[in-house]
Amino acid sequence: MSLTVPTSTTLVELQDVHLSFGSNEVLKGIDLKVNKGDAVSIIGPSGSGKSTILRCINGLLIPQSGKITVGRTRVDELKTETERIALRKRIGIVFQQFNLFPHLTVLENITIAPRKILGISEAEANRHARDLLEKVRLEQKANAYPGQLSGGQQQRVAIARALAMRPELVLFDEVTSALDPETVGEVLAVIRDLVREGMTSILVTHEMRFAEEISDTVVFTENGLIVEHGTPDEIFSKSTNPRINSFVNGLGGRATPLHDGEGI
């Protein structure tokens, strides 16, 4: 919990967001508020619209109706691609499948956006990248290519790459779902550090115990709606909603033996 940065300034706000792909209504009126420095976890069954919410926040998807605010930017009112690009520079996103650039070394993966988009000098970008690599505990892999790294290492590079743009907010889209159980822990440890430092984070995750441990707020989505939101304690222990109880316990219970105390 990001107790180190106590603040109640709202950074992200969604109001009554509706989004459909054709006749398939994916988001049916999402309301969400994320304070600066907070970590918010979105949990819920597959297909409930979790990842779609993240993609609306950084403008990769454009909802049919509703208000989305990031800082002072009204995301839903952005008209041009140029304006949406400006927004994305402020928001880091980490994907389930890492999506590192295979033709670039680890260091180049991290520095390419700051250098080509922000125009930062190579020396300065490299220095920052090495700091970030130290933070994700991969400083010795700077010159490796993504294909030479394990899944967990690739995902930590992806996190460093997102941080290299010095974002105000980082979106984590099921970042451990494609990893084998042994490497999940190293990625979660990096995210835990980030959240403790006060980086505003929104996580879509199936790691229930991890969500419980690090989140300020947990949101449960189902069928395009936020069914319940509250503190981790309210969702994981005190919820009276039988659907949430069975989801939380079902997943948590099943995964426990695999992980030996690391966040599930």
């Binding site: 690009i85 520079k89 956006a113 988009i117």
Partner: peptide, 9 residues
């Protein structure tokens, strides 16, 4: 997606 997510046009 990854490139756009970083802010590349």
């Amino acid at each position: 997606d990854a490139a756009q997510g970083l802010g590349f046009s």
